[in-house]
Simulated scan of single mutants.
Amino acid sequence: MSVLRSGSPHRPARSLALVAGVLLSLLSLLLGLSGTAGAAAVRRAPEPRHPDRDWAGSQIARHEGTAAGGAPPAASLMASVEGVDVSSHNGSVSWSTLWNSGVRFAYVKATESTSYTNPSFAQQYNGSYTIGMIRGAYHFATPDTSSGAAQATYFAGHGGGWSKDGRTLPGALDMEYNPYGSTCYGLSPAGMVNWMKDWFATYKARTGRDAVLYTSTGWWKQCTGNSTAFGAVNPLWIPRYGSSVGELPAGWGFHTIWQYTSSGPTVGDHNRFNGSLDRLKALANG
């Protein structure tokens, strides 16, 4: 009879346990890699900057919808003045065509953040003035890229200035949905309000004028907590694509300009000033 060595009956069991351990380790590793790949697939890279495709209402139309063509809203019994707003996506604008259609004022995008100027700004800003319109410039805000003061300074120095010539409107601050990421640019409501206060104060110090504020009621509620901090001072330019201006953001009892349609790249977005031409001139004069 042969004599078994001590422990030899347990070798097969230990071998199986070892193999099982290796397999479990490999399985864990594979699952870990799969999870990492899955997480990487979920994390999207930030959208590249495209300031040439950002204009007053571009994100409002995307998030809140637009009226699908059709006739413009009927004029109210109160006086109003027809206007447009344009940016680089409109290219070279035929201001004579717009003038002949009854347009009497224009807002032109000048800047975005502290690095972009509209390459069509001169043709659009000077062309609207030359044809006889009252014109103004606006800044597309990106509060996650720099301070309000920095962006107001950049805007005032790159087309957003003001002169008391009776034909130049105060600059406008365009606050709307972030085209590159987080709706509210990563700011809390209080942080957003403070950013805008910084922008408006800096702009007024540079130009002597209180700027116009472009914003929608939906965005305003979400990103400022429906702040009432600006309604007493800054004229409201509100986008609402339909037959009426609808609910206003908190703090304003009336609107100054209504962007009532986003009509595409050929003639710009259409607006109505809430008052007579004399009142529009008064806004220009300050």
Rank of each mutant, 00 (worst) to 15 (best):
V3I: 12
S6D: 12
P9K: 08
P9Q: 09
H10V: 08
R11S: 03
P12R: 12
P12I: 05
A13F: 11
L16H: 09
L16A: 14
V19E: 10
G21S: 15
G21M: 13
G21D: 00
V22E: 01
V22Q: 05
L24I: 14
L30Q: 13
L30G: 14
S34C: 09
G35Y: 09
G38M: 12
A41M: 13
V42I: 15
R53D: 12
R53Q: 15
A56S: 14
S58N: 02
S58W: 03
G65Q: 03
T66K: 13
M78L: 11
S80I: 00
E82G: 03
G83C: 06
D85I: 09
D85W: 06
D85S: 14
S87D: 13
S88G: 01
N90M: 01
N90T: 01
S92T: 15
L98H: 08
L98S: 04
R104I: 03
F105T: 03
K109T: 01
K109W: 00
A110S: 10
T117L: 06
A122N: 12
A122V: 13
Q123I: 02
Q123H: 09
N126W: 09
S128I: 08
I134E: 00
G136S: 03
Y138V: 05
H139K: 04
F140L: 04
P143E: 13
A150E: 13
A156G: 02
G157L: 05
G159Q: 03
W162C: 07
S163F: 02
D165Q: 06
G166S: 11
L169D: 02
A172N: 01
L173Y: 08
Y177D: 05
Y180S: 10
Y180F: 14
G181P: 06
C184E: 08
N194F: 02
M196L: 14
W199G: 00
Y203N: 02
D210A: 12
T215M: 03
S216I: 05
G218D: 15
C223P: 10
G225Q: 04
G225E: 06
N226I: 04
T228R: 10
A229V: 04
V233Q: 14
N234C: 05
N234S: 14
P235I: 10
W237Y: 11
P239V: 10
R240G: 06
S243A: 15
H255S: 11
T256G: 06
Y260F: 15
T261A: 13
T261P: 00
S262K: 07
S262G: 11
G264R: 07
V267F: 12
V267G: 04
D269Q: 09
H270I: 05
N274E: 01
N274H: 14
L277H: 05
L283N: 01
G286H: 02
